[in-house]
Design a protein around this nucleic acid. Structure first.
Lengths: 161, 161
DNA sequence: GATAATCTTTATCCTTTTGTCAAGTATCGC
DNA sequence: GCGATACTTGACAAAAGGATAAAGATTATC
């Protein structure tokens, strides 16, 4: 069971935008890329996925940028992962060639476990918002804000969207 | 977050062997392959992983076969998935190129969530044995035994290992 | 000892996932 | 309008994971 790179990096980008939401609102893709150590094109691809899912808004042209389309407090990890991977937890029950011939549908013990796991994981993810991620449930979030300040958004005073 | 094919099929093979443990003890790789709709070579590879991990025992030569090395009641899904994938849950916290430059180690909200998820998933997996998987927690396991009877093990009377 | 049945191992191919490149489109400021 | 800045998109390359093929090693039976 594994978290894909797209999920991990996509969430990290969302966290950066969540920090920016509290400071200068929008960031540019190169800024996010630099902070995360990724190429701008890579971040652009992740952002485009998130934009199509409605989690991120973008403004093209000079002084453009990307930002969350709503408050970090209103975006759960379940939503974020669903956007990035289609569904937060992709388990069997019957993947691959044996699916068609699986004579155990409905009574499959393995399937039952996958369902339980999906439930408990979704339970955790539902309870965590982007705001929680950034605040980390404790005052340590100051460290995050510091990082954001390295490359402050330039449009802090503008109203956007 | 996703369960890999190796994990899914590996567990299914273990379930077949768990059923055989209660009937004729050992099965051949082609038998397991036929029941699961996989190629014998593919099953052989999965079995070899499980064998190296100590979960499966094999006997070469004529009348050989593969079987669990201990009772299905003593093998948890945590063990099985650890054998098949190195660790039951592979999440970040810091995967890929941004790992080295991650300035948030220790205070990373995302990492904390991954840890919580790993904990709850492991909690479920620890509580499920191969015997539970096969019995499905209810009397329906009869269906499984029927399937096993399609290709019964031939060495039911022999003592092995 | 020869043969057939069976597991073992290595190499190879295919598919999916990741990541990059390059061309395109939109906006602002002059 | 022109150029600089930024996002958008589709094609492509690299890497990882999944599946197959083929040759090898081992054992029971005759």
């Amino acid at each position: 069971m594994k978290v894909s790179a797209t999920e991990e990096y996509g969430l990290r980008c969302l966290m950066r935008l969540a920090v920016a939401w509290g400071t200068g609102e929008f960031m540019t893709i190169p800024q996010v890329a630099r902070l995360e150590g990724l190429s701008p094109q890579h971040v652009a691809k992740l952002v485009s996925i998130l934009r199509r899912a409605g989690l991120v808004r973008s403004v093209r042209g000079m002084n453009g940028g990307v930002g969350l389309s709503r408050s970090p407090k209103d975006v759960t990890m379940t939503e974020a992962l669903s956007a990035l991977a289609g569904t937060p937890v992709r388990t069997g029950p019957c993947i691959g060639p044996s699916a068609a011939g699986c004579e155990m549908v409905g009574t499959c013990g393995l399937r039952n476990v996958w369902c339980r796991i999906s439930d408990v994981v979704t339970g955790v993810l539902d309870g965590v918002t982007l705001a929680d991620l950034v605040m980390n449930g404790r005052p340590g979030a100051a460290g995050l804000q510091q990082n954001a300040a390295i490359e402050p958004a330039r449009w802090g005073s503008g109203t956007r969207g």
